[in-house]
Amino acid sequence: CSSNKEEDTYVEAPVETLYNQATDAMLAGEYSQAVRLFDEVDRQHPYSVWATKAQLMSAYSHYLQDQFDDTIIAADRFIQLHPGNRDVAYAYYLKAISFYAQIADIERDQALTDLSMKSLEEVYRRFPESPYARDARVKYDLTRDHLAGKEMEVARFYMRSGHYGAALSRFRVVVEKFQTTSHVPEALLRLTECYLAIGIKNEAQTAAAVLGHNFPGSRWYEEAYSLLTGAKLEPRADEGSWMSRAFNSVF
């Protein structure tokens, strides 16, 4: 915050006027000004009920300026000081979406994706009936989808350079652990491709069959089908019935 000298020049104002000035600044889009004023409320009148509200509003103003790191710090401080407050759900939610907004694209470090998944999960698990639970749940699924994307990216890297062993185990991870994500159809097609490339026909057929069974209309299945027919094979489920039961339970 501002250097020491400037702080003393701040006139000690009653808490209501300070708070209203801050809110007006925020509504007018003067977010950094709003942050400074909200922090003043908290600093000058730490015991007023407005101080608690001001801490939360200061975090929100940071968020509006895309200063995600500061938002997270402010939200954390609110949670530490007022765990019992009825607005604490909003603080958790604000922290989660600040992580979520910084998720890097799949070719780069996914540390932020893990952080946002954990904090989103914290929101919908601790405050199931809060208005933010549903949105947190949706964003949580999107983040998981993103992690699956990262697995796919690495798997494709190995597939393109012909390391089918490595590619197969990564695609399997997507199908096993990320069954609810949007990458599963493509993973099944890749399994078909890779198993065909190394000549394990029954696995290729199983993968294609599951793909056809669960995503009949998708282009991925068309490509898998043409691949198999090209190689004079038709997709049939491996005799193990475990596969279809496991998959139906999910979809």
């Binding site: 780069r108 470090d109 540390a111 690495v154 190995y158 390391h163």
Partner: peptide, 20 residues
């Protein structure tokens, strides 16, 4: 881990080892 800017494959292709 830690590649905030560098793409995963730029580091991975330098590896003399492949998974498996």
């Amino acid at each position: 881990v830690g590649n905030v800017r560098t793409l995963d494959k730029v580091v991975r292709r330098e590896f003399r080892l492949v998974e498996g």
